[in-house]
Design a protein around this nucleic acid. Structure first.
Lengths: 174, 174
DNA sequence: TCCTTTCTTGACCTTTTAGTCAAGTGAAAA
DNA sequence: TTTTCACTTGACTAAAAGGTCAAGAAAGGA
C-alpha cells in the first residue's frame, strides 16, 4: 500500500490544482478527496510547494509525454491538438500552472520552463520525422497558436472556432 | 480627494493581482501599498471579489482599449503586439486572470468573456479597416498566436523567438 | 456657521490555512 | 515471536486571511 497513497495524492493534487489553481487550492480538499489525514500527506511531501513541484514532474510532464510521444505524423498531431476542448476541461495544465507560478517562485519557474522545453522538443520531433523545414520555429508557432486558441475557446465555448484557427495554421504552414 | 483613493486602490490592485494572481494576492499588500486602512477600502468595494471585478472593468479593459483603439493599420498592430515583452512583465493580464478565474466564479467568467469579446472586436476592426478578408477568423488567429507566444516567451525569456513567431504569422496571413 | 454626507481610522472578529507532533498501527524482516 | 520501520491518525498550533464596526475627521452645501 506504500505507493498507493502517494500516487493517489498526486492524482488528486493534480486535479485540484488544475481546477482551482495552486494558490487557490487548499490541502484539506485534497486530503478529503483521497480520504487520508494530514500527517500522512506530510510524510510523503514536506510542504504544499513540494507537492506542487511533484505534480509538475510526475503528472503534468508525464501526461504530456504520454500524449505526444506516440504521435507519428503532423496530421495526427493536429488531430490531437484539435481534440483538446474535449480532454482539457480547464485549459492547458502546463500553461495554467506557468502563468500562475513562474513570477512568484523560482523553483516552479525552473521546473515549468524545463517541462515546456520537453513539450516543445516532442512537437519538434514530430515535425522533423515528417520532414518539415525549420521545425524549431514551427513547433513554437504550433504550440503558441494551440495555447492561445485553447484559452479563447474556454472564454467562448465555441468548438468550431478553435478547430478553424488550428486548421488555418495547418494550411498556412504546410 | 474622494476619487483618488478609489483610483489608487484600482491601480495597486491591478498590479498586485497581475503579479500574484487574484487568489494569491492579499488585501493587506494593496492596503499597505496605497497607504490606507481596511475600512477605507471596504467603503469603496464591498469585497475582494468586487475589487477584482472592478479591476477587470476599469483597468484591464481600459488598458486594452487605450492600447488597441488607436491602431491604424495591420502593420502597426503587429508592431504593438511584438512590443509586448517590454510592456507586459507578467504576461497578458486578461489571459492570466481568465485562466485563473473563469472556472471558479461565474461573475468573473462573464465579465472576462465580455472583455475578451471587446478585445477581439478591436483587432477585427483594425483588420477590416485595412481590407483584410475573413477578419473574424484572422483576429482570432492573431490573438491566439499572440497569447500563446507571450506565454512561451515568459518561460524562455527569448525576445527574438517571440517576434519570429508573430512575424511568421504576419507573413503567412498577408 | 452648522449640518449632513462622505470618507478614514484602527481595533476587533471569525474562519481558514499550512504545518507539527506524539502516539499508534501493521506488515515484513530477522 | 520479536523487532523494526514505514505509514497513519487526529488533535493541536500559529499565522494569515477576509471582513466588520463604532467612532472620528473632512469636506461641501445651505
Amino acid at each position: 500500500m506504500k505507493k498507493d497513497t502517494r500516487e493517489a495524492l498526486l492524482d488528486s493534487a493534480f486535479n485540484t490544482f488544475y481546477k482551482q489553481g495552486f494558490q487557490g487550492a487548499n490541502i484539506a480538499t485534497i486530503l478529503n478527496d483521497v480520504g487520508i489525514n494530514k500527517g500522512s500527506m506530510y510524510h510523503f511531501f514536506k510542504s504544499k510547494k513540494a507537492l506542487g513541484l511533484a505534480v509538475i514532474e510526475e503528472r503534468i510532464e508525464r501526461n504530456l509525454v504520454n500524449k505526444y510521444a506516440s504521435i507519428k505524423s503532423v496530421e495526427e498531431l493536429f488531430d490531437v491538438l484539435c481534440s483538446a476542448p474535449k480532454t482539457l476541461a480547464y485549459g492547458c495544465p502546463l500553461n495554467k500552472m506557468s502563468q500562475e507560478m513562474i513570477y512568484i517562485d523560482t523553483d516552479f519557474q525552473k521546473l515549468l520552463s524545463t517541462t515546456y522545453g520537453k513539450f516543445e522538443t516532442l512537437v519538434q520531433m514530430i515535425l522533423e520525422r515528417d520532414g518539415v523545414e525549420s521545425s524549431e520555429l514551427k513547433a513554437k508557432q504550433i504550440i503558441a497558436t494551440y495555447e492561445g486558441a485553447l484559452m479563447i475557446y474556454h472564454l467562448n465555448r465555441q468548438d468550431e472556432e478553435f478547430v478553424l484557427v488550428l486548421r488555418g495554421l495547418e494550411q498556412d504552414i504546410f
